[in-house]
């Protein structure tokens, strides 16, 4: 249909606003085409399972379709979708692994500095070893590290995704790096 041709020129926000007015499968298909690759790759990165990532991508887009009216345009649509993807994958992994989230103490985050030596160690790690470390650590830590170092999200953007404060993000990030390094030493203790 030529309708889709016209709508592919619309911005995400315009497209979402029109879908909020009236649901339309063809128009939703335009949104799908724009974001499917990113969502699928995010799912693979978080779950490390291509087949599971396929199922989750389907479920995430269906969830987005049914909850599109809840999108309030305060954040960019891409950020909102990123948050939905992140939360959906982690919820799934938590259910799968009966993961128990440890609440982190935000109160001690005040002293945190950005130049954590573990960051340099992570960035200097061999890619194949990093891949094994990411497979072994907790999905919550993995998601956080991927957000910052693979997707290049700023602290502010991570705050938006996780809906927590700046100090909480920094604290969680520091703990994630620490745990990744502990895991690295356990896996490759004979020397790095």
């Amino acid at each position: 249909m030529s309708k889709v041709g016209n709508e592919s020129a619309l911005s995400d926000e315009e497209l979402v606003a029109s879908l909020q007015q009236r649901m339309d499968a063809e128009r939703f298909g335009v949104l799908y085409d724009r974001y499917a690759e990113r969502v699928f790759q995010k799912c693979i990165g978080l779950t490390r399972d291509r087949d599971l990532a396929k199922d989750l991508t389907h479920d995430i887009f269906l969830k987005v379709f049914t909850s599109l009216k809840q999108f309030d345009h305060r954040a960019k649509f891409g950020t909102w979708l990123y948050r939905v993807t992140h939360n959906y994958c982690l919820d799934h992994l938590r259910k799968q692994q009966r993961h128990k989230e440890v609440e982190l103490d935000d109160g001690v985050a005040g002293h945190l500095v950005d130049d954590d030596p573990n960051e340099l160690r992570l960035m200097g790690m061999r890619a194949d070893r990093l891949d094994q470390v990411l497979a072994a650590i907790d999905p919550t830590d993995r998601a956080l590290l991927l957000m910052k170092y693979q997707d290049g999200l700023s602290v502010k953007e991570i705050q938006e995704v996780l809906e927590v404060g700046e100090s909480a993000v920094k604290m969680r990030m520091m703990r994630a790096r620490e745990r990744a390094m502990v895991c690295y030493h356990e896996l490759f203790s004979e020397g790095a």
Binding site: F28, Q41, L62, M123
Partner: peptide, 25 residues
């Protein structure tokens, strides 16, 4: 950056699109 080296580059299979669209309908 080793995180970029291990970034997934897989394309979503076309079957997902068909499944999503039929579920949406």
């Amino acid at each position: 950056n080793p995180f970029q080296i291990i970034r997934p580059t897989d394309k979503p299979p076309e079957t997902i699109r068909k499944e999503v669209m039929s579920s949406v309908k």
